[in-house]
């Protein structure tokens, strides 16, 4: 078994914070993801074996919720809201254009160079500003293809 990239002490601390309570698995995974920006495999196995729950259950929870990711994310994260309001204001075109720009497809959301992760999210609740994107946690409203591409140019510059 190769050396794990995961510091189990960090996870043990998170588990202690949640009193090693198996019913707190979702907040635990959220905290672990905050720490590592994704859910490393060894982290999930460590959690399962420490809390005495089957690894398959932890894996099942981690793959059920869209907020969790088992793959490392890109340096930049752009979320395009595809809620109804944004959709009728053509967020689909923004998604298509970004995927084309960063050579992404279907389930591949992170560019090969790890520069960016392009995610479609369901309703951010800022429908008044549709279409909305969130670039590295900053909300940009009333987007057009033009504006998005400019943001990307600036990001790459």
């Amino acid at each position: 078994m190769s050396e794990s990239v995961v510091d189990f002490d960090v996870i043990a601390k998170i588990l202690q914070k949640h009193k090693n309570d198996p019913s707190k698995i979702i907040p635990i995974l959220q905290d672990v993801q905050k720490e590592f920006r994704y859910l490393p495999k060894d982290a999930l196995l460590y959690i399962a074996t420490t809390l005495n729950i089957p690894p398959s259950k932890v894996y099942g929870v981690a793959t059920f919720f869209s907020h969790f990711t088992l793959e490392p994310k890109g340096k930049n994260i752009i979320k395009i809201c595809d809620g109804t309001a944004c959709h009728v204001k053509k967020s689909g075109d923004i998604i298509k254009a970004l995927k084309k720009r960063f050579l992404l497809k279907d389930k591949k959301v992170t560019s090969d160079d790890g520069f960016i992760t392009v995610e479609t999210v369901s309703c951010l609740g800022a429908c008044g500003l549709a279409p909305v994107i969130v670039l590295n946690d900053e909300v940009h409203g009333d987007m057009t293809l033009d504006k998005v591409m400019k943001l990307m140019d600036d990001l790459e510059a």
């Binding site: 019913s23 707190k24 929870v61 869209s66 969790f68 369901s122």
Partner: peptide, 18 residues
Amino acid sequence: AGAFVCGEETALMASVEG
């Protein structure tokens, strides 16, 4: 953690239970 179905009562409770 990102699941629309958790708006449904029993699904919501399942997720609270981990």
